[in-house]
Design a protein around this nucleic acid. Structure first.
Length: 496
RNA sequence: GGCGGCAUACCCAAGUGGUUAAGGGAGAGGUUUGCAAAACCUCCACUCCCCGGUUCGAAUCCGGGUGCCGCCUCCA
């Protein structure tokens, strides 16, 4: 039996015990991208949050069908493509490819299914057909409109009543300002598909209803997306789906909070403050971006301070990696409890913390996916490890003491996609990305380090210190350890 | 204007009725180090936007106020 969990449902405005429609299975539909431009850090929030959520559910033995769509037929795509003199679908394909590159470099899972509007025309038209047949929709001048008045529950998700529900689409004879387009009659120069109502293309909302129905059925477990989609998009999805399928739509609506910039505005293409994932990825490791996104609760707004945010996340990530590496270096074969009683309170503390770690992580994540609390537990464990590591005998005998902690930290990689690399691979990625940003190359740094090592061996401290100061000026920090001199790139300040 | 949400230290942030209000970052002092870095230790909110109320007891519930944000137009 998969583990039970609780999740906030935007529809009921309450945290609810999750009850699957099918035992052991979760059907999840997440609104994906309209592919007319590159994915920015704000989009990454939704992508990372749901990626981590899916990972966690699978880790907890749920069988998850994860659907995330592409909107590849849309006004903005047509407009951009036309400016560029490219076919709209080719333009969309270009950004689908780039999206896939971005997701892959961020280390995100592929959804189980990635339906597209352009290849879902049959199910879209079938759903519109059912709505027309049942008088939930009507045709006018080659457009098909959803008749909002025909659905008494309209507004139940967004909490709006009639006054707040006017829809601005105004072309082609709709009956009420609240009605919205299911099918838009073709206009010159636009892509179109044949339909019973004449050539045209789908309205914005119908696609998700149709694709969710096609991939998950009329009723499914969880529908996710950004908080900004609640109205009108998700409200309209409910109306179309419940009227067209004569069934309740998603049981749970899960909305992620938005990224906001210091002025307080959310990040958005229309706000002119977007920061592309691929730009962030040239300077920071993927996991720093993940940690940044997961460090507060998924429903809260998250402040974006540019490089400062990622530098902060990178420092935190390095702390976790370092602590894990320290623990991995411990040896010893004795019984853990015997070692603990021999080595004292700090040993006993890590042992205890390690043993309860997984349980506490599960408790945090089962409670409305509280990644912030979960990460808090991880830092607490890291400190306990480091504290224990200050004891002289820890390295030789501490292995059994930190074994439960190390096993527990696996949760982070399996469930959240963090700490999934070796420390060395992680540091290599940091170096590879940040050397470029600092305008350095590794060979030059290594040469200086070798020079300094020679000076140190000669106990020529002033020469050694001069070299260290020079490296420091470059943004390189040296770390003299028992095993030799390591170097790292400074995380703070001087960011290119 | 309507609907929804948020307000916890210098910054990020957990906690939503009951031990000393998690955790991280920054800062100060100390230990360690050839000197550093990292790490560790100590300090850093008698208090949770404000005012009332409920309660034996509230950051947590209720009412009012203030501020901020999202949506109402495309939006993760």
């Amino acid at each position: 039996m998969p583990a039970p969990f609780r999740i906030y449902n935007s529809l009921s405005r309450n945290v609810e015990d999750f009850e699957p429609l099918r035992p052991g299975h979760v059907g999840l539909y997440v609104c994906g991208m309209t592919v007319y431009d590159d994915c920015h850090v704000g989009h990454a929030r939704a992508m990372v949050v749901f990626d981590a959520f899916v990972r966690y559910l699978r880790y907890r033995a749920w069988d998850v069908t994860f659907v995330r769509n592409f909107t590849d037929v849309d006004d903005k795509i047509i407009a951009r493509a036309s400016e560029a003199g490219v076919e709209p679908l080719a333009w969309a394909q270009r950004y689908i490819d780039r999206f896939h590159e971005d997701m892959s470099s961020l280390g995100l899972l592929q959804p189980s299914v990635e339906p597209r509007v352009s290849t879902s025309m049959e199910s879209i038209q079938a759903l519109i057909g059912r709505l027309v047949a049942d008088d939930h929709a009507y045709e006018a001048d080659g457009n098909v409109w959803f008749d909002v008045a025909s659905f008494s529950e309209y507004g139940k998700l967004s909490g709006r009543d009639e006054e707040g529900l006017s829809n601005p689409d105004s072309f082609g004879g709709k009956r009420s300002p609240r009605d919205f387009a299911l099918w838009k009659a073709v206009k010159p120069g636009e892509p179109s598909w044949e339909s019973p109502w004449g050539p045209g293309r789908p309205g914005w909302h119908i696609e998700c209803s149709a694709m969710a129905h096609e991939t998950l059925g009329a009723t499914f477990d969880i529908h996710g997306g950004g908080l900004d989609l609640v109205f009108p998009h998700h409200e309209n999805e409910i109306a179309q789906s419940e009227c067209g399928n004569h069934a309740h739509y998603a049981k749970i609506w899960m909305h992620n909070g938005l990224l906001v910039v210091p002025g307080g505005r959310k990040m958005g293409k229309s706000e002119g403050n977007m920061f592309a994932i691929r730009d962030a990825m040239t300077r920071f490791p993927a996991e720093a971006i993940r940690l940044y996104q997961l460090q507060n609760h998924y429903r809260s707004p998250l402040l974006w301070l540019g490089n400062e945010s990622l530098t902060d996340a990178l420092a935190k990530l390095a702390r976790l990696y370092d602590a894990r590496e320290v623990a991995e270096s411990f040896g010893g074969q004795q019984d853990a409890d015997e070692v603990a009683s021999a080595l004292g309170d700090d040993a006993a503390a890590v042992l205890e913390l390690g043993r309860s770690f997984v349980e506490r992580m599960h408790a945090a994540l089962d409670d409305d996916f509280n990644t912030s609390l979960a990460l808090g537990h991880a830092f607490e464990l890291a400190r306990a490890i480091n504290r224990f590591a200050t004891h002289k005998k820890a390295r030789k005998r501490g292995g059994p003491i930190v074994a439960p902690a190390l096993a527990g930290l696996q949760v982070l990689s399996e469930a959240l996609g963090l700490l999934s690399l070796t420390t060395e691979a992680f540091q290599d990625e940091v170096k590879a990305k940040r050397l470029g940003a600092l305008g350095l190359d590794a060979a030059a740094v290594e040469a200086k380090i070798a020079e300094r090592t020679a000076a140190r061996q000669a106990k020529d401290w002033s020469a050694s210190d001069a070299i260290r100061d020079e490296l420091s000026g470059w943004g390189v920090e040296v770390r003299d350890t028992a095993a030799g001199t390591e170097w790292r790139l400074r995380l703070s300040d001087g960011d290119a």
